[in-house]
Design a protein around this nucleic acid. Sequence first.
RNA 1: GCGAUCAUAGCUCAGUUGGUUAGAGCACAAGAUUGUGAAUCUUGGGGUCGCGGGUUCGAGUCCCGUUGGUCGCCCCA
Length: 441
Amino acid sequence: MATFQTLPGFREFYPDALARRNHIFRVWRHTANAFGFLEYDAPVLEPLDLYKTKSGEEIESQLFNFTDKGGREVALRPEMTPTVCRLVGDKAATLKRPVKWFSIAEFYRYERMQKGRGRCFFQFNADIFGEPGVEAETELIALLTQCLRGFGLTERDFYVRLSDRDLWFYYLEALGLDEARSRAVLGAVDKYEKAGDDAFKGYADQFGAPLDAALKEKVLAFLKIKSLDALEAALAPHSATAAKLGARLADWKKLLGNLAAMGLEKYISVDLGVVRGLAYYTGFVFEAFDRKGELRALAGGGRYDNLVGKLGYADMPAIGFAIGDMTFGLLLEQRGLMPAFVQAPDVYAIIGGEQERLAAFADINAIRAAGFRVDYPMREMAFGKQFKAAAESGAKLALIYGSDELAKGVVKIRDMGTRTEQEIPKAGVLETVRDFLSTAS
RNA sequence: GCGAUCAUAGCUCAGUUGGUUAGAGCACAAGAUUGUGAAUCUUGGGGUCGCGGGUUCGAGUCCCGUUGGUCGCCCCA
C-alpha cells in the first residue's frame, strides 16, 4: 500500500483523463478566440486580502491559505475575478476598450467534496471590461452558449437562465423597501427554489417581523416570472412612478432582441428566480444548467460594475462568467459527447535485431523530425509480438526492418488498415510515409 | 461545520455462524511461436484485506477510533 495519498479533493490526470481535459480546453480556447477574446494568465498564489476585500472575512474558511516564509498572508486562488480586475485595473489607462479577455486556469477551495465539486478544479473565465451596455451581456452570453454548443450540446441539453439584480432592486424600491430589506428579500429569493417558504425566515430574523404578506405575494409572483411579456405586465403598474424600471425594461428588450438575432433565443430562459448569492453582482446575472436538472450549475456569471473600484482602481464597468470543468465534464459524459481519445502513433517500426535496429533508427528519427508520430519496441521482441504491438498501438503504418529487407536495401511498409504491404527502397521511406499519411487522413 | 454510506490485487468484485498459506474475472508480463495483427493454452509478477487499537485460542469477517472515497445538507466566488 502506498505510503502517500493524494490530498483530499485533489485530482490526478492519467493520460486518458488528461486527453479529455485537453479536448475541453481546446474547444473553449478555440471558441474564445473566435469571439475575439485574448487569453491571459496570472499567479496561482495571491495575497489573502485580495479575496477578503472582495468577499469579506468569512471567505477565509473556504480558502487554501497560509503564511509564507516572508510572513505574507497568501492564498491559492479560489477564483479569477479579483485577479483579472487587478490586471485590468493596473493597466486601465492604456488598455484599448472594451477589454475582452479569457483564461483557463486551476482553482482551489477548501471545501467538502460533492458530485461535481472538488477542492481543485479548472475554470474557463471570460470577462469584458469597459462596456456598460447590454452589448457586453450579448457578447458574453453568446460566448457562453457557444462554449457549450461547441461540444455538440444543443438546446435540449442545456439552457441559460437570465435574471437581473438591478431590476429586482428597482422593483423592491418601487414596492417601498429600503436597501437593507431589499437585500434580505433577494437572499430569500435566492434560496426560494430549494427552501420554499423557509427561505424568508432569515428576513424575519433580521428585521424582527416577517415580510408583509401583500409584499411577499408580489415578490413571489415576481420571482416566478418566466417571460418578457410577464415581466412587462408586472412592471406596468409602476411605470408612471419609477423611471429606472422603464429604462431597465428597455435594456431587457434590447438584450433579448440581440440574442434572438443571433439565433440564441431557444437557449435563453427569462427567470427572475435566479439572483446569485454574491452581493457584488450589480445587474444582469445568468446561469447555465442542464435541461434535466440533474447537475449543479454548469456556468454562472453576471455584471459586477463596482468591483474594480472596490479593489482600489478607477471604476470600470465589468461583466464576466465562468464554466467549471467538473460538472461540465459530467454532462459531456452523460450525453456521450466525450470522444474516445486514441493516442496512436502514425507509424510503428517492427525491428528484427540489433543490426536492423540501427538501420531503423535513422528512418525513425527522420520521420519524427518531419512531424509524424513514430513508435517502436524498445526491446528485442519476436516478430509476432511486434505485429501485435503495432496493431494495438493503432498505428496506420508499420515499417518492417528485417534481415531480408536490410540485405536488399529495402524497407517493407505495411498498411495496417488494408493489411497489404510492399517493399520500398530504404532511401524513399520518408517520402512514402509522408505521401501515405497525407492522403490517408 | 453536519449527516449517510463504503474501503480486499492496477480495475470490477467474491470471501460461509470468526477457523489452515486470502480468491476469481479483466488488465499487465513471459512462454508455446526466430517474419505477420484473431483465438487458445501454460506460467508469472503483483495484497502487511486503508491505517491504529480492542475482543478472541484464532479477525478480511465483531467492536472502537482514525484516514480516505462516494452521496446529501450548509455553502457555492
